[in-house]
Design a protein around this nucleic acid. Structure first.
Length: 107
DNA sequence: GAGTCATTCGTTG
DNA sequence: CAACGAATGACTC
């Protein structure tokens, strides 16, 4: 079951273009919650799997973050694969091209 | 670069 | 009300 808050996260996440990634912090700001935790909770629910590219969300430190409710494990590896297919690559567990970070226009 | 503490909002029980 | 969560930032070593 999704909540009004979750819907906001999905709407904002859809703004992320393919081949780019965003962070929980930016996404949180996009929805206006100010807490990345709440965003993660919405992402893990992700009822709109392919529509909501939850795999395009990474941590602010350019770390892969989590996937399918896990911050580590095979799920995470799958996440990197998906991004790789979009042109986003990782280096030693970090985003190889920080310029790939998508930023929501707030101003 | 790595480890620790405090902060923050929303969902769930 | 109480507890948890796909996190972040600032500080110290």
């Amino acid at each position: 079951m999704s909540t009004t808050f979750d819907l906001r996260v999905y709407e904002a996440l859809r703004r992320v273009p393919r081949g780019m990634v965003t962070t929980y912090g930016e996404l949180a700001r996009a929805v206006g919650c100010g807490s990345s935790r709440a965003v993660g909770q919405a992402l893990r629910r992700n009822p709109f799997a392919p529509e909501v590219p939850c795999h395009r969300v990474i941590a602010s430190n350019l770390a892969p973050g989590g996937f399918q409710g896990r911050r580590d494990g095979p799920e995470q590896a799958a996440k990197l694969r998906l991004l790789r297919g979009e042109g986003v690559r990782f280096r030693n567990g970090r985003l190889a091209d920080p310029s790939r970070l998508f930023r929501f226009s707030r101003g």
